[in-house]
Amino acid sequence: MNWLLSVLFRLMLTGVLAFITLPIAVVIAASFSPTSAVTFRPWEWTARWYGDLFSDRWLLPFVLSVKIAVTVSIVSGIIGVMAAYAVVYEKIRGSEVLMSVLLSPLSVPQIVKGVAIVLFLSLVGLQSFLGTPALIAAHIVLALPFVVRMVATSIANFDRNLDRAGQILGASKRQRVQHILLPAIRPGVLSGMTFAFIISFNNIPLSVFLVRPGDTTLPITVINYLEYSLDPVMAAVNVASMIFILAVIYLFEKVGGFSAQLYGGSK
């Protein structure tokens, strides 16, 4: 009986993992497709589609997406730390209300948010704001709940005796935040910032309303391209951005050491 359950469990697990990974495997295979139609012939392959990526058509959107994602990651990191500090650490008056306001963007569908932002901007006559500034602002709103959540958890787990130890050793409040609290919550802050980066970099539903023609982010460029053609270049773009995201996660992990959440300073 037990072995049957165990076998069933393994089968289910394998199925779920296959469902997640196989499409990716197909995309990877397609990106090496020998003909301009998407085909799967592993014995015959070419990397030439990857060469097409180094054209302005793909490079400019990529650079724009990176610029936006970096800005979003940094700004939402800063705002997120300050907000979580005020709400969780200092427990300022009305902190619960503030927390729900900060997390509220989670409960509004992105399409609705996108439409709302466009309507709002044209209503107040700020159409010129559309494009990169609007994208950055909208992505920050979208990413902030994730950053706040991550940082809030880190701060809640912070051992306040460390702060007292700093205090009795003569450290002012500012010194304690700088030298004790921030290093202690750094892994949480960096993982929040990683999320913010990825959320911004991959975003379609919100961005689709806010981009300016001819100045689009990478995912929007992909969508536009897909309307007219499905070819191995498409697959190559997706594989490349996947590798890029993995590299970003690796980099943040290197700097922040999420795996050392508890003890920090993994070196």
Partner: peptide
């Protein structure tokens, strides 16, 4: 000076 029961050493230093 104060010595804490759980030491309260700064883990990242």
């Amino acid at each position: 000076g104060l010595v804490f029961q759980n030491y309260a050493l700064f883990p990242h230093m």
